[in-house]
Design a binder for these strands. Sequence first.
DNA 1: CATCCGACAGACC
DNA 2: GGTCTGTCGGATG
Length: 742
Amino acid sequence: MGRLFDAISSSNQLENHTMNVFLTRLLFCFFADDTNIFPKQSFSQLIKNHNIHNLESLPKLLSDFFTILNLEESSSERAKYPAHLTTFPYVNGGLFAEVLDVPNFTPRTYRILLDCIDLDWSEINPDIFGSMFQAGINPEQRSTLGQHYTSVKNIMKVIQPLFLDKLYEELEKIKLLKDIKEKNKRLSALLQRISEIKIFDPACGSGNFLIIAYKELRKLEIEIMKAMSENLSMFSHIHLDQFYGLEIDDFACEIARLSMWLAEHQMNMLFEKELNFYQPTLPLKNSGRIHCRNSLRENWLVFVPRQSADDEVYIIGNPPFGGTNNRTAEQSKDMGQVFSGFRIFKSLDYVTSWFWKGANYIKDSNAKLALVATNSICQGEQVAVLWKPIFNLGLSIHFAYQAFIWANNARDQAAVHTVIIALSAENFYPKFIFKEKGDELFLTKVKNISPYLFEGSNLFIENRLTPLSSNVSKIYLSNVPRDNNNLFLEKEEFDYLSKIEPRVIKYVRRVIGGDELLNSRLRYCFWFKDESLDELNRIPIVREKLEKIKEFRLSSTREGTVSQFTTPHLFSEIRQPEKGNYILIPSPSSERRPYIPIDFLDSQIIAINSFMIPNATLFEFGIITSEIHNDFVRVVTGRLESRLRYSAKVVYNNFPFPEVDDIQKAHIEQLAEDILLTRADYPAMTLAQLYNPETMPEPLKQAHQTLDRAVEKLYRDKPFSDAAERVAFLFQRYEELTKKAV
DNA sequence: CATCCGACAGACC
DNA sequence: GGTCTGTCGGATG
């Protein structure tokens, strides 16, 4: 089909929309041929019978053919067309309403068309073919669309807990009724109810969510009808116009509409098979209320109107994600409109726009929402910014899927971790937290779901510039080079330079980022702080590197970087401690480790990609490496996919350190030192190996556990039973401390 | 002026 | 080609 598209567009000058509609019509006809929608005549024959030497008349034939499909069978207009066309039925549904410029066919494109016709279209699965098709057609979308495609499994995670499970529960309850009359009455009422449900996907793409939701409601309807013993309805009560979609891409929109018809036809066939009532597919009804619009610039109430606040509306979908560095100018403008009136919002992901608009749609109503999102909206700096205003609308999270790996057809392990979050104005009890571990699914019923998607209060940890706890050392982000790697030296280059240009060696320092710290890698960098640029430029090797840095900085889109082209010998940001030791905390670091590995370093060693606590004490080391601190990190910190990304403003500065006297402090310091000494017993192991759960030496585990218990005891005498209890305790402490501060 | 993030990126087996 | 785990620099507040 991609070949057909390429062939047609290379030999024709058609508008995008025209091309999209034309291909959609062809697809419908292929499908109609193979599934008996065209009972008397076949489109394939019509095309195949056409004389290949007379291709210039093909557009006229197709154009007439499209007109016929748009003419009611009783219409006198039909008589004006040849007999082999008028045996085709009236299709309607808007698919053939528009008068189209039909493209010309070359012998080559005609052959490709015949190849397409010969495929078996009856087997196509409308829930997935849209995305496949779209990816195959649109060159610039070929690379990205596969990633946005939502599998049926993932769609079910959204719609089952949102409404499907409850409807089936209701059906099962009714089935148990003894009184036949009452039972039938209740079944009719349920039928009526599902015929009034509205499903809305505000970023519907090619319609996956709408199609699956439609099919599932039709299946439920069949079950309801089977349970009825009288007044059996002979037709389906569920209509495509209960399904609403907004989609910015015109082609995706056309495909979504088409897919809804295909799904309807398939469900009609199932309906007939299960209940023995024939459902005519033609003429097509309104194919859902799917509009090609920028969802974020529209008032959703106009597209999905409500008779009253009691209407049963479900907003579902998987809107696009886009972090601050990954948005188009247009998308940033969208966010400006959606979050107008917000003082801070630009650090939010693009996907949160749909949450905020959705939250405003469902507030004070019976409408509910469940959307897929990147896990970053429930971690780190975004949490307070987004969830505070949402909860202030009187909404709560009534079910959630904790972060899971996004699986798609492109790659098994996708490049993002996702969550599913459902919001409603109704305060359900219990609320459900779903957690996937491998192939297993765990369900916890809880009283409240925190914005971090754990059981707990609606407390948010806000960005804080200085430590909440007094008498704690300040933490700093490490140095930032912005040098395009020109100030750095690997071990080999360092050795080489030592030989050929020994006068630069005095400027070289060891440099440590997460990688070097954890894996004991040796890496060096030029540290030209306090050196004269003119002097440095006299050394050819250095001069060459500095030229490259100058060029790199000048080409940056970041103003601050550009202005530093005059100081190419310096790191872009320098915060290196002048003397003494500092604690280095890598960011990020694997979540598999029971503790984030941290270490003391000499100030001569330059830090990058991490956090530094200059002049830190063993006490601070002990607290940061303790289990309770790591528990806190796991809940609140931002993550790189699932990796823990330590942070200053979210984690360290908000962590309620325990209050201690000198004796208690000395005790912690001694236990912290024990850890360092135990590590030193394994000089051949890297920190990554020492803290790998599979290779962590038993004595080191012991030393940590001893420290863990001692730190816990500083908070309260009674031991905690698990991480959840420790974090709940810390949150409470945080709340008290922040209240006091006001 | 300092920090957080990545519908990732790149190394390693 | 899976699997594992952290670079780097822009945008932001």
